[in-house]
C-alpha cells in the first residue's frame, strides 16, 4: 500500500498545461500541410501522390481550380515529397465548425504543358462538393434551429460535458488517441469533461468513421438516444471526409452523411491536443486559460 502511494506521490502531477500553453508537438511531427498557393506551379504531381484525394484539381476553359480538403488529409506528407510548394507543418489544431472552411482552393491560368501559369486573384469559385446523399431527417425538429441550440449548449456545457464515443467503423487509430485523453498527461477530466457509458448521459457524441453500412443504424440509434441539447464531433480523416476508405459498397463515408456534425477534427489519427482543441471548440472553450 505504501509502495503504491509512494510511487504516486514521487511521480507528481504530469498533466500538460494545454490549452493555456501551446501544444507540445515534436518539430518533426506532421501536422497540417501548407500550400504556397502563389508559388504552386503544377497540381498534378501532388494530386497523384495523395492517397485519399484530399488534393484534387479540375481543368475547365483554360483555367484550373486546385483544391485542398483538410478533412480528407491523412497527414502522410507524400504531397510535400512530390511538390516543393507544399510543406508539412507541425500544427495540429485544425478543428473547424464548418465543413467548408476546411477546404481551400485557388484558380490558375492553365499553360499548354499542363502546368499552371499564374494565380487568378480573388476568391476561388466555391469548390463543388462531391455529390453526397443529404443527411436524413432525424427524430428531433429542433435540428433546424441550430443556432439556438448552440447558444443553449454554450450555456449548459461550458463547465460540464459528458461524451459518448462511438466507433462507427474506424481502424481503431482514433480510439487509441481518444483513450489517451483519459491518461494523466492529457487528463480531460480537469475541464469537467467525462467519457460516459451511456448515450443517455451524453451531451456530445465523438464519432469516428467512416460510417460502415453495418454501423449506420447503430449510429443513428445512439444519436436518437442522446438527449437534447447535444452536439456531434466527427473525428479523423475518415470521420470528417471519408478518408482513404471513402464511400464504397461497405461504407457510407463521412459521419455527416448520416447524422449532422457540429465540429470536425481532422487528422489520421488526430493528435490528443487536436482532439482536446476540437472538443473544447465545440463547447466554445478552446481559449480556456489562454492569455
Amino acid at each position: 500500500m505504501f509502495g503504491i502511494l509512494g510511487k504516486s506521490l514521487s511521480t507528481g502531477i504530469v498533466t500538460t498545461k494545454y490549452p493555456a500553453a501551446p501544444p507540445k508537438v515534436s518539430i518533426r511531427a506532421r501536422g497540417r500541410p501548407e500550400i504556397d498557393w502563389t508559388q504552386w506551379k503544377d497540381a498534378r504531381p501532388a494530386a497523384a501522390a495523395c492517397p485519399t484525394g484530399a488534393i484534387s484539381f479540375q481543368d475547365a476553359g483554360g483555367h484550373r481550380t486546385a483544391r485542398f480538403d483538410l478533412a480528407q488529409c491523412i497527414f502522410c506528407g507524400l504531397c510535400a515529397d512530390a511538390d516543393p510548394a507544399i510543406r508539412m507543418t507541425n500544427r495540429v489544431e485544425c478543428a473547424a465548425r464548418d465543413r467548408a472552411s476546411l477546404i481551400s482552393a485557388a484558380r490558375y491560368k492553365l499553360g499548354d504543358d499542363g502546368a499552371h501559369r499564374q494565380l487568378v486573384p480573388g476568391p476561388a469559385p466555391v469548390a463543388t462538393e462531391p455529390a453526397r446523399p443529404p443527411a436524413p431527417a432525424v427524430s428531433s425538429p429542433l435540428e433546424s434551429i441550430g443556432r439556438q441550440i448552440q447558444q443553449r449548449s454554450r450555456l449548459i456545457f461550458g463547465r460540464s460535458l459528458h461524451i459518448r464515443e462511438v466507433d462507427a467503423g474506424s481502424c481503431n487509430g482514433c480510439e487509441i488517441e481518444i483513450a489517451g485523453l483519459n491518461s494523466p498527461v492529457y487528463d480531460i477530466e480537469r475541464f469537467g469533461i467525462h467519457f460516459v457509458a451511456s448515450p443517455r448521459h451524453a451531451d456530445m457524441l465523438l464519432v469516428t468513421g467512416p460510417v460502415t453500412r453495418n454501423m449506420e443504424l447503430a449510429l443513428r440509434k445512439t444519436y436518437d438516444a442522446t438527449p437534447e441539447p447535444r452536439c456531434v464531433v466527427a473525428v479523423g480523416a475518415c470521420g470528417c471526409g471519408g478518408g482513404i476508405f471513402g464511400v464504397n459498397y461497405a461504407t457510407r463515408g463521412p459521419v455527416d452523411a448520416v447524422i449532422p456534425v457540429d465540429v470536425y477534427v481532422p487528422g489520421c489519427p488526430p493528435n490528443p491536443h487536436a482532439l482536446l482543441h476540437g472538443i473544447l471548440r465545440a463547447i466554445h472553450r478552446e481559449q480556456w486559460g489562454r492569455i
Binding site: L9, I13, G192
Partner: peptide, 10 residues
C-alpha cells in the same frame, strides 16, 4: 485524480 498523477476535476 491527484494520486493518479493528474490534475483532475475541481
Amino acid at each position: 485524480a491527484k494520486l493518479q498523477n493528474r490534475r483532475g476535476p475541481r
